[in-house]
Amino acid sequence: MLRLEKVSAGYGPVQVLYDLDLEAKPGEILCLLGRNGAGKTTTMRAIMGLCDRTNGRVMLGGTDISALPAHEAPRQGIGYIPQGRRLFTEMTVAENIEIGLMTRKKGKATRERVLDMFPRLRERLDQRAETLSGGEQQMLATARALCLEPSVLLLDEPTEGLQPSMIQLIRDAVVTMKDQGVAVVLVEQRLDAVLSIADRVAFIENGHGREVVDAEVLRTDTSLLEKYVGV
């Protein structure tokens, strides 16, 4: 269980998030929706301790991870698949995987399980990450995070710029994680994808948390989508 309690965060003097409350339960997919610049990416960075938190707490289970140094968040079990993938591009596929495994000292068994989910990565282990196609890079970013055997998974626009077949693959991986009891927080622009896999949707507007609703509600009533996303 991941819970944000009144989190305020930003970058130096720029405040982006204001008293944000958020909760992601094990085995559910929580989607964050909001316009560009609303603060979705910053929310994820605040969870990871990668921006300046000025107020509030980030609780993971019973632990206040916002009181710990940033490198503790992944060690406590938060897997992060950032916007733009952010691979270690000059390293090989195998080395990127290795860094994921090292985070929580996982071994060969985890590595095999993750590579079984993405056979195309197994064929390209010695290839430099920057030479992969966009879809393969997203697979690697996903695989790297799954190597933590996370209890919480943060995905920031994982399907950005991908072909439909790749989108399906990433989506399957996300659903698999959810079924295994992982709490998934997903930022996604494509509403059809959100509505088809999300359990709950949290709206963010200008760094403020707004309504949190069951995804079911949005399938019939689109007024919230119009209000916060503009469609």
Partner: peptide
């Protein structure tokens, strides 16, 4: 090398 390539992501993967 990970720290050299991407400081943020190094932290996001548990590197102090």
């Amino acid at each position: 090398r990970a720290t050299q390539l991407d400081w943020d992501m190094a932290q996001a993967f548990g590197i102090p």
